[in-house]
Amino acid sequence: MSQRGNIPILRVGSNLLTTIHIDLHDTIAEAFQEDVLVAIKNTGAKGLVIDITGLEEVDTYVARILADTGRMAALMGAHTILVGMRAEVAATLVRMGFAMDTVETALDVDDGLAMLQARKALGRK
């Protein structure tokens, strides 16, 4: 898939899977958001799993980009699930007062994809 940034976005069935494995500074984070939205448009994906197992820290700026990406994806018809957040990242975000309430979460990629499948089976948008 053609991308501006260097975070790969894979197609898994009717869903997209993207694994963030590099330090997200602002420009990369914005390019990532753009790439995801373009990919949803091009593939007509109904679901998106964002895997952040590799992120050792997520500040409020990056957390917001991730949360916004989920909301934008929803507007384009794709449901987003954020997976693999580390314990220390979750604790830090909550302590800072940003619990990313708008984003659905799962433990890992398998769980995230299974949840998207379940949604599809239930016929939810």
Partner: peptide
Amino acid sequence: LKTTAAVRLVGG
């Protein structure tokens, strides 16, 4: 509440 929110973030 904070613990609940954090557990939700990791998927539980």
